[in-house]
Design a protein around this nucleic acid. Structure first.
Lengths: 156, 156
DNA sequence: ATGAAATCCGAGTAAAACACTCGGGAATGA
DNA sequence: TCATTCCCGAGTGTTTTACTCGGATTTCAT
């Protein structure tokens, strides 16, 4: 019942990208430095985000990534699903269209359904621009610490 | 971001127990048969539920398990947490009391917090007796199939 | 043209988590 | 006493996670 590092790092990376890619493409190495995530791992994450159509890449020198669409139309759900696959806590075939034999007897189905829905609702209503906003506010308060970013322990 | 079989099987087992343990203790082997879960694995799950204080065990012949308290005061959250550990999608130290250095800069913190809260709210408001109720309703409709339970494919 | 800066891609791998099984011990009711 | 049932720790194959690495390709800048 845990989100893997893909989702955790990936969302951080995309928020970073949203913040810095307005003027020019942002390279993996620069995200890596700011966010303290390994370059080679970040590569994989960006590949997924690209395949999901959330970012576009620009190859060659001075290349990098930019958002494929405005930050206000990318939800946390979009990002996490791109990186983690679907976000359902339980994938019961009874929840799909076909259903399964004995699904009448399957009470837990309703439980999983509710959990899935509540997660989906939560992640789908949070948009990237809101987080960027929050992040800018936070940085105003503590500019000093940002230089110290690599020594921090929070890898959320 | 998946619930393991512990949580899935365990909730089924506990609903079963709630349904059948009113008159007498219910053995692992009978739950195992009705729910089509291996006995030895079920043993582990019941041990966790017992240590969490959700069921009591009666040893010896004709022994088994019963709920430790009424079904209306056991939530799905109680059960899942007993079996899965905590249900948080992300455990960020910034969410705990201490916080972490640089937590001012940690925007994703708010995201994880929201997800965790929404999961918690959902599982904590569903009580076992509601599910037992649902289950009884379902069984009235399709009594025939219940004999056929072991051949079904839904292991939700 | 050349070289540095980037993305792109597939493969590989150590460690952890998962989903169990197994063997034997201890309690208890018939 | 003996069958039934819980109790407990250890063991094990499989899958997933969380990465790393090497090399190919594209493109900008000089």
């Amino acid at each position: 019942m845990k989100l893997s590092t893909k989702g955790r790092y990936g969302l951080r990376a995309l928020i970073d990208l949203a913040q810095y890619s307005e003027e020019e493409a942002v390279s993996i190495s620069s995200i890596s430095q700011r966010q303290n995530i390994s370059e080679s791992y970040l590569e994989q994450l960006m590949a997924k985000l690209r395949k999901a159509g959330l970012v576009v890449s620009i190859r060659g020198a001075q290349g990098g990534y930019r958002l494929a669409k405005p930050a206000e139309s990318i939800s946390v759900g979009d990002v996490l699903r791109a990186l983690e696959g679907n976000l359902e806590a339980v994938e019961c075939s009874a929840l799909k269209d076909q259903g399964c034999e004995g699904s009448d007897l399957c009470v837990t189905k309703y439980v999983w359904q509710r959990i899935n829905e509540s997660i989906a609702r939560t992640v789908d209503e949070m948009m990237l621009d809101q987080l960027v906003e929050e992040s800018r506010k936070a940085q105003k308060k503590g500019t000093k610490q940002s230089a110290d970013y690599s020594s921090r322990s929070c890898l959320g």
